[in-house]
Amino acid sequence: MPRFVLIGAEPFPFLRELLRAEARRASVPLTEVSAAAWGTTTTPWLELRAGRFRGGLLDTEGASDTELTGEDVLWCLTERPPPPAPSEYMRAEHEALRDGFHTCCPARSINRRGLLAPLWTLALWRLLAQRLPARREASVLFPPCFHLGPRPEDGRRWKPWPREAEVSRAQVWWTVPTPGPLHLALVAGQRVTLWRLEDDKPRLAPPADLEADLLQLARACDADFLEVLLVPREPSDDAAAAPWTALQLSTLPEELESMLADERPEAREHLASFARELLTGQEDAR
């Protein structure tokens, strides 16, 4: 019987409720660990014997020990920084233990974290730049143009890449030819759904080439779940411009949560079918 472990799901109450319901429906035991408990009262462990990894979670208050196997499913949605430590050495040790657990834990991990996973080591704009076009000449999805340095004065509309401006202070600017309406693509396992983020957010059928690009992008990022913001080429634009441009990439189901909050049945169906495949299947989530 597989087990489903959900870590740090508090910012996504609608998604969490739906996952709880799917776990109940599949009779799969669900273990929830809050972001506050993860790394403090619930700590990871990892054991390697004769080249085989074992891993699990220890609840140091209740003294319970949950070993995770290859049948189990782990989705760590959010994490907090490691708990305050008396030294830089101890802080690094806490972080290294958590990264080691994410990388080597035998459970089927959704969007597996760790230091070998591009989603968690590369800045997202660089991930878009380096992983797109995903299918070379056959691709219809491209990254924007990026510039590092002072804002270019070339008449084009350059915008700062927000996270870099906030965190690293890198001056990363991006631009696209005249953007069409903003769209959202949800990639969950092998399914892609496309939504126009205007006019009541209608769900659209994704063009086959775009769907193939998004699935390949997810594979290239080792991702099981992705939200991608993208814009199509304006009909009036130069035909040489990219048919679609990806503007943002996220592992957090924020837009999905907002659609679940709006009681969008298509969004609910999309997540439910992803969860059902995970909880009843034996294949790796990826």
């Binding site: 462990w45 990892l46 806490h94 233990l97 080691g100 657990f101 760790g114 230091l115």
Partner: peptide, 30 residues
């Protein structure tokens, strides 16, 4: 990858080399 030794162990094993038997954790239980 060097930031966490267990992260490297996954790549080391995949390359065909051996890794010492190891326990990493923050509790006495195991």
């Amino acid at each position: 990858s060097n930031g966490s030794k267990p992260c490297q162990y996954a790549a080391i094993l995949a390359a065909g080399l051996r890794v010492p038997d190891t326990l990493a954790g923050a509790d006495w239980t195991r």
